[in-house]
Design a protein around this nucleic acid. Structure first.
Lengths: 232, 232
DNA sequence: ACAATAGTGTGATTTGTATCACATATTTCA
DNA sequence: TGAAATATGTGATACAAATCACACTATTGT
């Protein structure tokens, strides 16, 4: 890779929170170990069971982390966006990939081989700690979803997931939005129910004005009310 | 804490795989930051929502990591044993505890405050990396269980969990054992089904000789057969 | 050795959610 | 602009698993 390209990669890597503690020099030299990769929409970046160990840093684009059953049903673990990373598990433990990662939108990413990543971690306690934090929050989320899945019904889980995804709405004071909203089918995979069930649940929530659909996505006018619904 | 006590703690900490890369000196000085704690059986060590951030290293004893629903139903995430650790999430990110940890048998543990643990990680890339590995395998397990829960039926999940828990049987060549076996109720919480359903599933598996109960616990004479059952 | 407690087995019934089978919208792009 | 492809809405039915209710069996302790 040319130095010019590496310099470009390095400046793009500034957008990755995990690497924010690196000095310019350290980031430059790490960027030298990275490759620039681009994917179109609906492309598979990582496939379950493969033995590659590269780490990916998302500069722009959206991807889904998911798994299939033999019968073709899907479970979605997470939606990844600009600034996120993935592929760290295999890079750390060398085991085969545990899930698929597929691009939704076109994606630009920097990727580096496992040894370069391990080397980065060994030499930078701050990056190491940042990754530990990332993985902690990952585990907390997985714990929560596992709990929801065994202890809650479909409607409660759907509400909980809506609350997790909602961000304060800049255009409606006090309100929350999910924008852009996933398709029912995708949301269903995330919650672990059928598409039809999500459709029925949303109808009810809409009838009670707990959620509102518009062009911006899905709005939650009153978060408290939805929380009440999620907890009983 | 007296130096004598710290020395004892240090030698006990040798049993913790996570700390195995530490030199005697480094371990001694870390042991100085630790406190020795003991719990009887059925005691709560960590409670969901609490803001303490201590890390625990299990010298002897067994504990369960779990969560309750409002209705009293339980989900068990993991069983921890000698050499394991817990409490690292809160120590790393400072957030409230995400689950309960309860002693099953009497327990002896070393515990240290979050800053001492963070300090240990910052100064020891090897320990840091070992923890990253531990958390990676944790995430893989959670991913798997989440997948099983949404994509598989109760019987398949029960078989999968049996396979996960089984270890090669030293007394029966080629066979596997789970020893000691959990109660049906506990196993049910782990798999995310009712106790009665586990009872019925075990009856079927016993009728087909896929599992055998005896005083040592639960034996799996032919792992391959059980795997077949789990995958269809 | 006995009662008390904890764990297990099994039928009958109810429940939630998947599945099937369409109708109806909405978006995409030729 | 119209046709194809995607996404959504909704009833009817099927089914797996929870729940309820109780008998039975081990384990524990005094």
């Amino acid at each position: 890779m040319s130095n010019i390209k590496a310099t470009i990669v390095s400046s793009e890597l500034k957008k990755i929170p995990l690497l924010s503690s690196l000095s310019d020099d350290a980031r430059d030299s790490f960027a030298n170990k990275c490759r620039w990769v681009e994917y179109g929409p609906d492309k598979s970046v990582i496939e379950r069971g493969m033995f590659d160990t590269n780490v990916y840093f998302i500069i722009t684009g959206t991807l889904h982390v998911l798994n299939y059953s033999e019968t073709g049903r899907v479970i979605t673990y997470a939606t990844l966006k600009d600034g996120d990373m993935f592929g760290e598990l295999a890079a750390i433990d060398g085991l085969p990939r545990s899930a698929w990662v597929c691009s939704i939108t076109p994606c630009q990413m920097a990727t580096c081989p496992s040894p370069a990543f391990i080397n980065l971690l060994s030499g930078n306690a701050e990056v190491s700690l940042a990754l530990l934090k990332r993985m902690s929050s990952n585990i907390r989320l997985l714990d929560d979803r596992l709990k929801d899945l065994t202890l809650l019904g479909a409607e409660q889980r759907a509400c909980t997931e809506l609350l997790r995804m909602a961000k304060p709405d800049s255009e409606a004071p006090g309100g929350y939005v999910i924008s852009p909203m996933l398709t029912h089918a995708n949301f269903a995979n995330l919650v672990g129910v059928s598409r039809e069930t999500i459709s029925r649940i949303f109808r009810k929530l809409r009838e009670e004005s707990l959620i509102v659909h518009n062009k911006r996505g899905l709005c939650i006018p009153n978060r408290k009310l939805l929380e009440q619904r999620a907890f009983l």
